[in-house]
Design a binder for these strands. Sequence first.
DNA 1: CAGTGGTCTAGACCACACT
DNA 2: GTGTGGTCTAGACCACTGC
Lengths: 274, 274
Amino acid sequence: MPSSTENPSLSSEQRPAADALGGSDAAATVLQGAPAFSPLYQQIKTLILRSLQAGEWKPGDMIPSELDLAARYRVSQGTVRKAIDELATDNLLVRRQGKGTFVATHAEQHIQYRFLRLLPDAGDPGSQGPAERHIIECRRQRAPAEVARQLGLRSGDTVVQVRRVLGFQGTPTILEEIWLPGHSFKGLTLETLSTDKGPMYALFETQFGVRMVRAVEKVKAVAADADSAPLLGVQPGHPLLSVERLAFTYNDVPMELRRGLYRTETRHYHNELS
Amino acid sequence: MPSSTENPSLSSEQRPAADALGGSDAAATVLQGAPAFSPLYQQIKTLILRSLQAGEWKPGDMIPSELDLAARYRVSQGTVRKAIDELATDNLLVRRQGKGTFVATHAEQHIQYRFLRLLPDAGDPGSQGPAERHIIECRRQRAPAEVARQLGLRSGDTVVQVRRVLGFQGTPTILEEIWLPGHSFKGLTLETLSTDKGPMYALFETQFGVRMVRAVEKVKAVAADADSAPLLGVQPGHPLLSVERLAFTYNDVPMELRRGLYRTETRHYHNELS
DNA sequence: CAGTGGTCTAGACCACACT
DNA sequence: GTGTGGTCTAGACCACTGC
């Protein structure tokens, strides 16, 4: 135990929360001007987040126990607990009683597609086996202006473009166009994608160290055009769901833009509101 | 109020009620079969929920302070706190520091439509003022089989059917068909609906004591049919978003079925995934 | 000022998973 | 049994709101 002067009323100033136990300490940060009050557990949350970004703990790994972290950050278990709680509700960590707390991953999640909201109208979702996948193409090119804008790239930067079709029980159902920053996805090839089984986001984690954390989608109704229609086996003009997804890594950095066309004759986009 | 509000029954197995928790219990009850362990804060949550359902505290009301509730249920403040925390993340309660904890309401929420996910493609959501509303009809009838099924009614029970159009800046955009259990919405008329300003869900709260708590939606792409097209000012065949919403009150009781057709030329259905 | 929710601590004990 | 997360308590103090 360090200096017995660990007095309980540390809340008035920002606690440095010495990262390693090495004890850089006592350097109470002075809150000048604007910086609003930030509770300790928020600071802990940020520190944990930083370790996640830095790859100190990788997807699927178990992170140190609450007591270990409490010792490391020099706070009580309850404070660490609250930080982890929030990270868990954000789906960045997964708690498992009796075992430990783990870094969330897109692999090993018994739900095949974590972000895909398309469900069959009837029957349970798991009943129709995995989707059939056909990669149409995978090439590197210069980012179109709109793509660059959404991915936070400079217009002209290299992106990887992937096109593929997903089918269920022999019926082509989803046509997707995916753009990824070339810089972060060096070496992604059609070969890689075609060979791989399992969710694409799992591949991104294992092969490129990129973990998608959250996403926003814009959904519209559109008519199938001459290009898309044959790939989905419908007539031009057929109504399709257009789903544009922007997915983010840690720190709200956009890392993927995905434009999908969904057939919804026997499936629907499912959403829960509260 | 009279002191009749005594401690409603907590599961006796783990809580000897008032006495010191020294070691007096150990009443390791052998409940075999189903009844799994239920933490105290969950029981508290259920009790609070019950009070909400019973209307002891109405939407907009302030509920008793944490310390009051802790005394009432004979538990610590922390336990009440955790119960309230969960109810707050479920959007059933709203905490306001320094003021109190309040029952959530659809009125007074600066967001006009709590469940409506349709946003303009560009510009901020609040910029285009309120929607223009036209009630087409409001009548009582026997529930079609499918409607009855989803609302948990017997086929043949009375339902209120409402049809209306919402427009933005002069453009009809949403055509909705709404079914409500007749039993819970006695006295709902076209007159009432037309006169009222503000969200329909707010009206439901104030006039009928029905608070919608959560909802699930099924979204599809469809083609405008001959009936809908003129009401939305589009050609038959025009692609529209079909949004079927089932909304629930407390206790997951279904209370509204709503089928909407959305024009999405300049708007999109927005969704956040995590 | 008093009252409310919000943070933090320290310690006890319970439930669960592995070995 | 040991180690993990999960629950519960009691008490202290902080931050915000309104009288």
